[in-house]
């Protein structure tokens, strides 16, 4: 008996289903000179769009393709190293 393929209601994980970076009204800009590498922005980002890159001088980087600009990162940063800058 050959395996029959059915049309099933199944889905697979995919990063970037929507280009949510276009939703953004304000953009988080990190002043890396002020950053104390506490990782609070990474921890509290609701979108998984802040990445910790230990090898980089920047240490934390924002993925602007998908960051929605909610501003939680700027709000939780203990040293106010993140500012929200209006887009365009």
């Amino acid at each position: 008996m050959s395996e029959i393929s059915h049309i099933l209601p199944l889905s697979k994980p995919k990063e970037g289903i929507s280009r949510t970076g276009t939703w953004r009204l304000k953009k988080p800009v990190i002043d890396h000179s002020k950053c104390v590498k506490c990782m609070m922005c990474w921890l509290h980002c609701p979108e998984s769009t802040i990445d910790v890159v230990e090898s980089s001088d920047k240490f934390v980087e924002v993925n602007y393709d998908f960051c929605k600009g909610c501003g939680v990162c700027a709000n939780v940063c203990p040293v106010k190293a993140i500012s929200m800058v209006p887009e365009g």
Binding site: L8, L10, S11, K12
Partner: peptide, 12 residues
């Protein structure tokens, strides 16, 4: 047709 298992990410 499919089985839910830990570590095998599918959604139905």
């Amino acid at each position: 047709p499919y089985t839910f298992k830990s570590g095998d990410p599918i959604t139905m």
